[in-house]
């Protein structure tokens, strides 16, 4: 018998679909009979989905520019100073 406490403990694996089939069947049976756990499971799944679905906003231009400048500076004239093949290798 799966209790609500058991269900909550297994919720992550249940949502990530990493539970073994026997346990999974028992957990499924539980949420079909237990409205509370069904709602908890459903709203937790939606919580994860809503975060996953949120795209990262484009980087503000000045931040992108400063990043590219920092990279260019790093790779700049001093490049190859410590490495094997200098900039004029080819």
């Amino acid at each position: 018998m799966v209790t609500c406490k058991d269900f909550l403990r297994e919720l992550n694996d249940f949502l990530d679909e990493t539970t073994d089939p026997v346990l999974r069947a028992e957990l499924e049976k539980h949420i079909n009979e237990c409205p509370n756990c069904w709602v908890i499971c459903d709203t937790t799944r939606k919580t994860i989905q809503v975060y996953k679905g949120m795209e990262a906003q484009a980087l503000p231009d000045p931040i992108h520019q400063r990043l590219m400048n920092a990279l260019a500076k790093k790779a700049g004239p001093g490049k190859g100073g410590s490495g094997c093949c200098g900039g004029d290798a080819h």
Binding site: R9, L11, N12, T43, T44, T47, V50, Y51
Partner: peptide, 16 residues
């Protein structure tokens, strides 16, 4: 795993 479960449930709580 245990932190993820707590995090998910806390967020679920707030979003609900």
């Amino acid at each position: 795993k245990s932190r993820l479960l707590r995090a998910r449930l806390q967020l679920r709580e707030k979003l609900t």
